[in-house]
Design a protein around this nucleic acid. Sequence first.
DNA 1: GGACCAATTCGCTGGTTGGCAAAATGATAG
DNA 2: CTATCATTTTGCCAACCAGCGAATTGGTCC
Lengths: 138, 138
Amino acid sequence: MLEQFETVSKAVADRNRVRILKLLETGELCVCQVTTVLDLAPATISKHLSVLKTAGLVQQRRDGRWVYYRLAEREFNPYALRALVLVASSLADDPTVAEDRRLLHMVNAVPLQTLCDQGRAALSSKAQANTTCCGGPS
Amino acid sequence: MLEQFETVSKAVADRNRVRILKLLETGELCVCQVTTVLDLAPATISKHLSVLKTAGLVQQRRDGRWVYYRLAEREFNPYALRALVLVASSLADDPTVAEDRRLLHMVNAVPLQTLCDQGRAALSSKAQANTTCCGGPS
DNA sequence: GGACCAATTCGCTGGTTGGCAAAATGATAG
DNA sequence: CTATCATTTTGCCAACCAGCGAATTGGTCC
């Protein structure tokens, strides 16, 4: 019990994992989409997603070469859903979260194949009209 | 924002700090009482309490030589109260938490001075008996 | 089959954290 | 003022963790 609670809290107690959860609130996402928005190494994102999955906060689905993640629907962990509610009701107007959502919009406008090939470069073409491409990513 | 959220999550993402919060749900407690129940070095408990305080989850009050901690009432951190609610609604029947509460009852039966002098030894001698429990107000 | 690809796992590194003992702090009692 | 006491701070160590590159896995396409 305490262990399960600790697993969930620890999973949520990381800035980038929270960013991932906030992204997934908008719906299912492919790993490469998350990677592009957070601008971290694929290995790092994969590990974060693994931690979130172990905590029962997300679940995965494979479709061909791509793996999609979404917020957990079933109760893998008795505290996971409550933690998701907490996250969902928080950080609504956090600047980083807002910027991530803005980037996600641009990511969604790019075909998955292009995104996986070019990574963040796939966004620049669209971002040119939009001057500021993340002045300070973190 | 994200930083404040992270501070709170990290504070809650530790087994022993959660145990402290669950203890404080029963009311205000002196540091030496918490130390006796958790059975850790005073320095360790003090550091944990400091982390909880920095996160805005608890507040302190000094009374003579003793320092009392209680769950935060004011909004030092915009996410602290929500986290406290989450903790309060969790772990109701966790064995460790239950055992801590049992010990706390015994601790409450011992005068503070005796507790500070003898630590855990003060419990074995007066395991049963007298006086009102709960020195804590409210 | 083999080339290719997205994602994961492995191995490593720098930074963080929980734990304690010892010293420092701040208050009380004589 | 001095001694004493509860708590906090400091210094240190072992364990853990986020991050990345390299190697591996599981899958598609030719």
